[in-house]
Design a protein around this nucleic acid. Structure first.
Length: 547
RNA sequence: GACCCCGUAGUUCAGCCGGAUAGAACGCAAGUUUCCUAAACUUGAUGUCGGAGGUUCGAGUCCUCUCGGGGUCGCCA
C-alpha cells in the first residue's frame, strides 16, 4: 500500500512528459540501500522513447512533484532504477489507515459482486480419507477462504459418486466380511476388494442390525451393505474434515445427473452438434475435432454404461449453468489427463473455459525418522488423514499441506510435524499471536489509558519501521495469493511478519517505556496481532491466546 | 513412445509481471536474558539456480534441445 503515496505523482510526471498512461510497477528492493520501494519505469520506457534509461529517469525526477512529508529521497541507481525512500511519517500514515480497518484488515473488493465455486475433497464414500485428500482439502479450503476475503461469494462444493463400480466393490467387500463373520469362511473375498479394517467394522454393523438375515447372497442384501458402507464412509469423511475446520456448502451427487435427465440431454446435444459418433457399439466423443492434440474417447460403453468423462463434462456444465464467475477444481496429479477433455467439452458446448481454473497438486510422501512411510492402498494399511490429525493436530496438518506450492511434491516430515517447538514452523507463527495477547493482558493490568489516541510519530526505530512496512503488504499479498490460487504465498508472508515482529519485540521494550512510546508500540503490536489473526484465519489455523 | 509437473545452500523449500549483490527454515559455528513467553533475537560459513544453446539493456524466471526424479496415457474413476 506504500506505493499509493507516490504513484499518482509518477503518473502526473509521465503525463507532463507527454507519455501515454501506463501502469507503473513498484517493487520492494532486496537490498536496504536501494530504499523502501523502487520502480523500473525508466527502463520499461527506454525502448519506446529511444533514450537511455538513466536519462529518462532523470527527466521523470525533474518533473516529479511529491509531498516531502512522505518521501524522504529519490535516487537513480543501477541500470536506471528509481529508488524511493519514505519518511517515517508515511509509515505512520499507512499504519493509521490499517488500524482503521480493524478486523476487516486484509479484506478487499477485487472480487466483490462475483461468485466462485470451489470443488475440493470430492472423495467417493468408499473409505477413509488419506493424506492426498488432506492436501486437497487444505488447499481447497484455503483457496476458498482467500477468494472470500477478496470479496467473492464462494460456494464450497463436494462432488461424489455413490453409484459406480467402486461402490459395488465396497458393497461386495463388506458382504464378504459379513459372511465371514457369520461363519462362512469359504466365502470368496472379491478380487481388488477393499481390505481396510473399517470393512470389518461395517460388516459387524450389518451383523448387529440384521443378524443372520443376509446370509443368502442376493442383490437386496448387497444393497444393504452398500448403504451401510456409504453412510459409514461419509460420516467418517465429514468427521475428519470437521476436525480440519472444513465445512462445505454443497454435496453434489453424480447420480443426480442421470436421474434428472442432464446426461440424456447432454448426449443428444452432443449428437446434434456432431460432437459424438457411434463406433463398435459404443458412443465416442469427438475430442479431436475440438482440439487436434486430443484423441477421441468413449463416453458410453457398448454395455450402455457411461464412462467417467460424460458425467464429468455434464457436471462441469452445471457449474457454468449455475452462473459462477470463477470455477476452481482441486485435483491430484493422477487426474491430470482428464482436464483437457473436460475443458474441450465445455468449450465445444459454448462456455467460456477461461472461467475454469484447475489446480493440480502433486503427491505427498510421508517421512518419519528419515525413512519413507510407504502407503499401500491395496493392503489397506495406508496412514489415514484421521490418524495424522490425531497425531500432530489439525493446525499443523493444514499448515504443512499448504506451506509448499501445490505443484511441488510434498515431503511431509512427521518428525518435525510432531515437534511442539521452534523446529515446527506453525508454532513460530502462532507464538507471535500468543506473545501479543499476553503483552496486551499485562498492559491492561497496568494502564488502561494507553489504548486511546496513540502518537505514532514515536515509532522510528528501524525494527518498528520494518515491521510496519511488512504489515502494509498484507492486503496485496492476500490479493496476489487469491489471484494465483496459491495459499503458500500467504504462509510465506506470515512467516515474514512473525520474523519482523519478533525482531521488533526484541529490540523495542514495551512495558515500562514512557507513556507515548508504550502506547504507540502497543498499537503496533495490536496491528500485528490483527494481521496474524486474519492471516491464520484464512489458512484455517487457530490463533492461540497463550502457548 | 507421447503429454503434464518438478530440478535453486548439506536437507526441506521461497523467489510476484523478466530487474540491481539469488532468500528463508532446519542443520552447523559463535553470541544475546537482573527486564514484556529464549517456542525469541543477533552474527558467521555454505550455491555450476541439473546441463547446453538462444531471446534482450537485463534470465532462477521466457524459447529450443538435453539429462535426472515423479505422474498420466482403458469401453477404470
Amino acid at each position: 500500500m506504500m506505493h499509493t503515496f507516490i504513484e499518482s505523482s509518477f503518473q502526473q510526471a509521465l503525463d507532463a512528459m507527454g507519455i501515454e498512461h501506463q501502469t507503473i510497477a513498484f517493487e520492494r528492493p532486496k537490498v536496504a540501500e536501494h530504499g523502501h520501494m523502487s520502480t523500473n519505469i525508466a527502463m520499461v520506457l527506454a525502448k519506446q522513447l529511444k533514450k537511455k534509461p538513466q536519462d529518462i529517469a532523470q527527466e521523470i525526477l525533474s518533473q516529479l512533484q511529491y509531498d516531502t512529508s512522505f518521501v524522504q529521497s529519490l535516487e537513480i541507481a543501477g541500470a536506471g532504477f528509481i529508488n524511493i525512500k519514505f519518511q517515517p511519517n508515511a509509515f505512520h500514515q499507512a499504519m493509521q489507515i490499517m488500524m482503521g480497518k480493524k478486523r476487516d484488515l486484509g479484506k478487499t473488493t477485487v472480487g466483490s459482486g462475483k461468485t466462485a465455486n470451489i470443488e475440493y475433497v470430492s472423495a467417493n464414500p468408499t473409505g477413509k480419507l488419506h493424506l492426498g485428500h488432506g492436501r486437497n482439502a487444505a488447499i481447497g479450503d484455503t483457496v476458498a477462504n482467500l477468494l472470500e476475503w477478496s470479496g467473492y461469494k464462494v460456494t464450497r462444493e463436494y462432488y461424489f459418486n455413490n453409484a459406480g463400480n467402486q461402490m459395488n466393490l465396497l458393497a461386495a467387500s463388506i458382504y464378504a466380511r459379513y459372511r465371514h463373520l457369520i461363519g462362512d469362511n469359504e466365502y470368496q473375498f472379491p478380487e481388488d476388494g477393499y481390505h481396510g479394517e473399517y470393512i470389518a467394522d461395517i460388516a459387524q454393523q450389518a451383523l448387529d442390525l440384521h443378524g443372520k438375515q443376509l446370509a443368502v447372497e442376493n442383490q437386496d442384501h448387497i444393497e444393504i451393505c452398500k448403504k451401510l458402507g456409504e453412510e459409514w464412509c461419509f460420516s467418517s469423511i465429514l468427521e475428519t474434515l470437521k476436525k480440519m475446520n472444513i465445512h462445505q456448502d454443497t454435496y453434489f451427487n453424480e447420480d443426480s445427473l442421470f436421474t434428472d435427465g442432464t446426461i440424456a440431454s447432454l448426449l443428444s446435444e452432443l449428437k446434434e452438434k456432431g460432437l459424438s459418433y457411434e463406433k463398435d457399439g459404443a458412443t465416442w466423443m469427438k475430442f479431436s475435432s475440438i482440439d487436434e492434440s486430443l484423441t477421441d474417447r468413449v463416453i458410453v460403453k457398448s454395455s450402455g454404461e457411461p464412462t467417467y468423462r460424460l458425467p464429468d463434462i455434464a457436471y462441469h456444465r452445471t457449474k457454468f449453468e449455475r452462473g459462477y464467475d470463477l470455477i476452481v477444481d482441486i485435483f491430484g496429479a493422477d487426474h491430470i489427463a482428464t482436464i483437457p477433455d473436460v475443458k474441450a467439452g465445455i468449450q465445444a458446448l459454448g462456455y467460456d473455459v477461461s472461467k475454469l481454473k484447475v489446480l493440480i497438486y502433486q503427491f505427498v510422501t510421508l517421512w518419519d525418522n528419515g525413512e519413507q512411510v510407504k502407503m499401500s492402498k491395496r493392503s489397506g494399511k495406508s496412514y489415514t488423514l484421521d490418524e495424522l490429525i490425531d497425531e500432530v493436530g489439525a493446525d499443523v496438518v493444514r499448515f504443512f499441506f499448504i506451506m509448499r506450492g501445490a505443484q511441488t511434491q510434498l515431503e511431509f516430515d512427521l518428525q518435525i510435524a510432531r515437534e511442539q517447538n521452534d523446529k515446527n514452523p506453525v508454532y513460530y507463527l502462532q507464538y507471535v499471536h500468543a506473545r501479543i495477547c499476553s503483552l496486551i493482558q499485562q498492559v491492561h493490568d497496568h494502564d488502561k489509558q494507553v489504548l486511546e489516541h496513540p502518537d505514532l510519530s514515536t515509532l522510528t526505530h528501524p525494527s518498528e519501521i520494518t515491521l510496519i512496512g511488512t504489515l502494509t503488504r498484507f492486503e496485496e499479498v492476500a490479493i496476489r495469493a487469491a489471484h494465483h490460487l496459491e495459499p503458500q504465498m500467504l504462509a510465506e508472508y506470515l512467516r515474514e511478519v512473525a520474523s519482523a515482529f519478533h525482531s521488533f519485540y526484541h529490540d523495542c521494550r514495551i512495558l515500562g517505556s514512557e507513556h507515548a512510546v508504550l502506547s504507540a508500540r502497543v498499537h503496533l503490536a495490536l496491528l500485528t496481532k490483527t494481521v496474524m489473526n486474519n492471516g491464520l484465519t484464512i489458512l484455517g489455523i487457530s490463533s492461540p491466546e497463550s502457548m
